[in-house]
Design a protein around this nucleic acid. Structure first.
Lengths: 339, 339
DNA sequence: CCTATTTACGAAAGTGCTTTCGTAAATGGT
DNA sequence: ACCATTTACGAAAGCACTTTCGTAAATAGG
């Protein structure tokens, strides 16, 4: 390995001076700067990030945490993180996806990130009352959490309540009154908020919600949505519209409907939440509430870097707007009745 | 920050001894070991990975490279890397997703990983003749590349040629003879191999391939597949089956077919490649060639860690089997003719 | 009870860099 | 030509560890 000592020896300058040109200090002469730069190129020198980190206490690394179950394949997670990564790159940060053991001892991710010396951490899609998360925001690691709102932390999340409102408004405007909700796990912020939003909008419209129309679809999965819909299909008095708390759940529900020999949107109108890529390409196209993952990722990054750079605990909560994306999975109630 | 000096001072032992118990050296007494461990817990000490890395030349970090265009959202990539990550965790490695600049100067990822001192790097979905890739395998960074076969490197990839064979065999067994191929970019290994496989199987069956039936769908995207299919739909003599080099392309093709007022599988049988999650859930379910992403990721990890640990350049090329997954997007030619 | 071996620990040198501060030389002002 | 700045550089301490080797003490061997 070629170090600053090598290039100091070659040029005749001290390592201090070499380090200075490497870091663009102003107190070096032009010729010196040039000579050293040449030697750097010639020897193919590159600095050692660990030495640098050890000395500066800055690792230029951001720790990334996400739901263990769905992992990197989770569409909302990876879309958000992709956007986050782009912002991080611009600022010169790398992303560290951590395992949970330091030297084979299982530890919390907070400990692990402390060990790694990350400059900050971003958490996506966590359970609301995770003790790990609590530990994180109580630590003095700069952090931002996505898809959650909680005091005492930097957070960015979609306006889930308004999302429910948009969904139900849409269904209502199409004439639907018997609306079911396949809700997501209430241990997650998104599930809980969308459910809450559902109830309040139904009330706003003066619509009654039957208890059997509100069923738990679990962790936003295809399987969960399918099972929940099958539950509903057993009822004698069927709803005409389904509002699923996530797109994968909505797709599962559609499958259940089709397997029952019924059709979307002819027998049921369905609207999802997320606007994952598939929704646009499937048949029928999925009407859904779009989460702006790109904006969310970028905002999270900005919040985090702001906090890292200012070194003060300036905590913000930003709520990102959602919007309705109309595709083919919903239909006016009048057409349904004709069938 | 609490360092080994702190715990040395507190216990009265030297930092050497402290370090030794931290690293499970055998030459420390039982009582000493216990006392030091207690102090460690009490002070909430954790080691500094950068200091450790500086001293040992091991960062316990693996660099991850993937196609810039598709990014983390690419289904094949993230499924593969998810599996890779699980293996990496077991061995105690973290994953580093790198940006391309050291201190705001754009550099190659090889340089960047050298700077970061990663212990190895995994490349997924690269262009075949990328100079970066060449540089990587010529460097003495341990590495493994996925979805590519090239001499002089550790590689793991699907049996693309056999995949084409399975696809065409299937179509042929259903009675199809007029088979089109929407191929992927030939700058990528997968695209090139699947195309090559296509030609050779067609020949095997004594099927003639019309030049107009072989169209470039680009970088395996929905849009590329859709455009390619639209091209084919302009022909007067239409094929009855479509073999798309990727699932997203297949889905794009299906959209094009449906937009033209035609149907899958009634007017065209289509088979894709990858077996991405969506394929199972869409209507019609997509018949496809499944890539074993879990196996691929795990194998890649094993190859890489083997190389890292043995410290010798033992290069292997492993070809992972694929298999046909039959769903609803293909149909016997006899049924098509009835329509 | 004396010597040979083992056990338990610490000194010190590395690891590659940053950053403060001191100082000699060069420059500016008059 | 003399003093006051400014400019350009280097010495040295620090960052938090690992690891080799030396040595005193403890144990074993006879």
């Amino acid at each position: 390995m070629v170090t600053i000592y090598d290039i100091a020896k070659k040029t005749g300058y001290s390592i201090s001076t070499v380090s200075k040109v490497l870091n663009n200090y102003s107190d070096v002469g032009e010729k010196t700067k040039r000579k050293i730069s040449e030697a750097v190129d010639e020897l193919g020198y590159y600095p050692s990030s660990s030495a640098r980190t050890l000395s500066t206490k800055r690792s230029w690394t951001i720790g990334v945490v996400f739901d263990e179950d769905s992992g990197i394949e989770h569409p909302f997670f990876n879309a958000t993180i992709e956007s986050f990564k782009k912002s991080a790159e611009k600022e010169g940060y790398d992303l560290l996806f951590a395992s949970n053991n330091i030297g084979s001892e299982p530890k919390s991710y907070v400990d692990h990130f402390l060990y790694r010396g990350v400059d900050g951490v971003v958490v996506v899609c966590s359970e609301m009352d995770s003790p790990e998360l609590k530990k994180l925001i109580e630590s003095d690691l700069p952090s931002v959490v996505v898809d959650l709102d909680m005091r005492g932390a930097n957070v960015v999340y979609s306006d889930n309540i308004h999302g429910s409102e948009l969904a139900i408004d849409h269904l209502h405007s199409l004439g639907h009154t018997k609306i079911a909700h396949l809700h997501g796990s209430t241990t997650q912020f998104a599930g809980q908020q969308r459910l809450e939003g559902f109830y309040s909008v139904m009330k706003k419209h003066g619509l009654t919600v039957h208890d059997e129309y509100v069923v738990d679809g679990g962790l936003f999965t295809y399987e969960g949505g399918k099972a929940a819909m099958e539950q509903i299909l057993k009822l004698t008095d069927l709803p005409t519209a389904i509002y699923a708390a996530g797109d994968m759940m909505a797709i599962g529900a559609i499958t259940a409907i089709q397997e029952a020999g019924l059709s979307v949107p002819d027998d049921f109108s369905v609207v999802g939440f997320d606007d994952i890529k598939i929704g646009r390409f499937m048949t029928p196209g999925l009407t859904t509430i779009r989460q702006e993952t790109t904006l969310i990722g970028k905002t999270a990054a900005n919040l985090l870097f702001e906090q890292i750079n200012s070194m003060e605990r300036q905590l913000m909560s930003v709520k990102v707007p959602v919007r309705l994306v109309e595709r083919a999975s919903c239909q006016s109630i009048s057409k349904i009745n004709q069938v």
